[in-house]
Design a protein around this nucleic acid. Sequence first.
DNA 1: CATGAATGAGCTTTCATTCAT
DNA 2: GATGAATGAAAGCTCATTCAT
Lengths: 214, 214, 214, 214
Amino acid sequence: MTSHKISRPRKRDAEATKQRILQAALEEFSTHGHSGARVDRVAEGAGVSKPMIYEYFGDKDTIYAAALREAYVRIRQAEKHLDLDALPPEAAIRELVRFTMNHFRRNPWFVSMLAIENLRGGQTIRQVGDAPLIQSVLVERVGEVLKRGIGAGLFRDDIDPVDFYVFIASLCYFPISNTHTLKAVFKLPVDDAWLDKRSADATEMLLGFLRQAP
Amino acid sequence: MTSHKISRPRKRDAEATKQRILQAALEEFSTHGHSGARVDRVAEGAGVSKPMIYEYFGDKDTIYAAALREAYVRIRQAEKHLDLDALPPEAAIRELVRFTMNHFRRNPWFVSMLAIENLRGGQTIRQVGDAPLIQSVLVERVGEVLKRGIGAGLFRDDIDPVDFYVFIASLCYFPISNTHTLKAVFKLPVDDAWLDKRSADATEMLLGFLRQAP
Amino acid sequence: MTSHKISRPRKRDAEATKQRILQAALEEFSTHGHSGARVDRVAEGAGVSKPMIYEYFGDKDTIYAAALREAYVRIRQAEKHLDLDALPPEAAIRELVRFTMNHFRRNPWFVSMLAIENLRGGQTIRQVGDAPLIQSVLVERVGEVLKRGIGAGLFRDDIDPVDFYVFIASLCYFPISNTHTLKAVFKLPVDDAWLDKRSADATEMLLGFLRQAP
Amino acid sequence: MTSHKISRPRKRDAEATKQRILQAALEEFSTHGHSGARVDRVAEGAGVSKPMIYEYFGDKDTIYAAALREAYVRIRQAEKHLDLDALPPEAAIRELVRFTMNHFRRNPWFVSMLAIENLRGGQTIRQVGDAPLIQSVLVERVGEVLKRGIGAGLFRDDIDPVDFYVFIASLCYFPISNTHTLKAVFKLPVDDAWLDKRSADATEMLLGFLRQAP
DNA sequence: CATGAATGAGCTTTCATTCAT
DNA sequence: GATGAATGAAAGCTCATTCAT
């Protein structure tokens, strides 16, 4: 998420204003959590007055819900850039893992929003529903790759794409989401090099798993 | 007749009170996060007056730090019950994964505290330091098991125990920490059965990885 | 082709708009009081934008003043329908009381405006001045009836018409203005039947008073 | 209601503090109405900080309810000082009217609270219920006097005490509650002399009514 | 030690009013 | 003339923290 000051507010443009608020809200909530977020800071970040925010969204919870939804929308958008069709199955898996790791690494605000929403018991995501907008595109890609791999006799055929995607996500999410405790507790150097190695090892692990007989 | 005689029980009481506060704080912070936690609720949960809490801890941040430390202490305590010495290397790995998964599953407050502290950028854990009290015993166990496995020619010899433990943790942590979004977004039934399957598959994945030539 | 031709309709529209605002304001202020009234709701009720309201009236206090004045204007208008000339004095008094009671009963917004303005210490009515527009027609009628009654030797001759009208008003106003507390505190059934009985009794009371020797 | 600054707050006395808040709330609500009342002013008037008020009462509506109840409690207290037993029936009625008029005149805050609560549709009084604390003592007195008058063959026997009390109240309430509009609209000099005359005339009117055959 | 009473500072939300088109 | 967009100022309410007993 680019945090450089939003370009000078073009006044009297409702849609643009709403978008600026959303952007600021996403920054604020992902950095401070739900209770820690301050509507004042959202207003300042968006370059608008507080009443505008309430005009457009109603109350803090609704701003949060909108920000969470926005997080998913953006991530989904970013995921569309992944194209695995040209790659053979195993290479596709490699690319998938690499992509996922980078995805989380470059969009830590998304990882934060996930953590925050889960800490809240998923109250909001459950209501946002709106599956098509929210569901990861990656799962579809995974499904396609697995099918190709199975067809080529390379992968076992008893793996659910969602379950498998959760493995990928698990391996990529944790080192990013828990960077700080990993550094402090295990003295790990959670930097790009370490994450790249992690990504590579995870890939091997996952491919090994896929190659195993059921 | 000095007051000497009762000074011992007093101390006992004080210690017990402090412990009750810690327990209440742990519950409060893990369920509501740092900003969401309320000192009033901690006091009520501990059955003491608010000034008591300030007497013992100073301010909210310090209570939080103590609760975080307490979380690690308790988890470390629980980890001591794991004994892998009697098991052959591969069985030991299986047990380790099983144990870790159950560990997170049964102590969701710990998972929450990890998420919370990481969202805060690890501010506190970095200061708590106190490594010996905090570092996971599991890493040592992992180290021992890996060594035995390497000695027996079963496992590759280029794996760092900490790195490997992080793989285990990744695979077990994510489905627990992100239960709610997994349910809402992927319609996954994140229940005991699903988690057991996950644990089993993760085990295979990890063993496969250990068996691979470097 | 000047714009002259449409200037008349414009004026008509402007006047009509102003009237709609006044109507909405009257509703709003009489139901919510001065502080409780919301300019937004007046705008919505009148079907115009807020700036329009400020264009026409200036500020909330001025709207209130206009609404109060409007209340008096309307009431005065309604009072014109009372014709006592054909009735003998005692019947005229009966009709007068009946009319007043119904007047308050059917125009509770007027009773409310009176209460509201008095709670505000009469700040506004004092400034509105504008006596001719505001003074009740009823007082004149009362004066005429009393004169006729005195002339006929039926009524005592030391009664001031205004004072007497205030008696009528007192007896009719209170049960309407205080309906809710009367219901709650005295369990009175303040409905049409009860008010009719009240009106009848009040009439006897007032006639008895008029017949008494000074 | 004495409005001179309350004697220096004796700190750390919960009951006294609560009472001071109640006093200040009564002043504030009766002067400014429900929406117009400011919690800040109540706090200042009571010599406490705002949080104290919320600690003791919860929210603005509850403060209002407590103030309304307090108004009734005080009025009932004041009404206890009326003793009619020694007076013959007609004198007792005279005294009753005189007392009621003075009651309203000296406690305008009570008249205001009645008007305010009625403007709110009696929302609160309906919930306060609590009849014994709220019902006027005067009604009982009226009942006793009427009974004595009927027994002495002086009064008609078809008058309900409550209904009759409402006549008294009507005649005394209106000139007080509507002082300001009466002054502004009818140029009436609503002062002590005028109110005394009113009281006297009302008495005659009411006695005449009581003496009439049914 | 222990606590009921109290508060400064800040948070979310509202509202009369104005700007800019 | 008309309005959607915007805001300064304040209102109700909360919370970490301290006082006084």
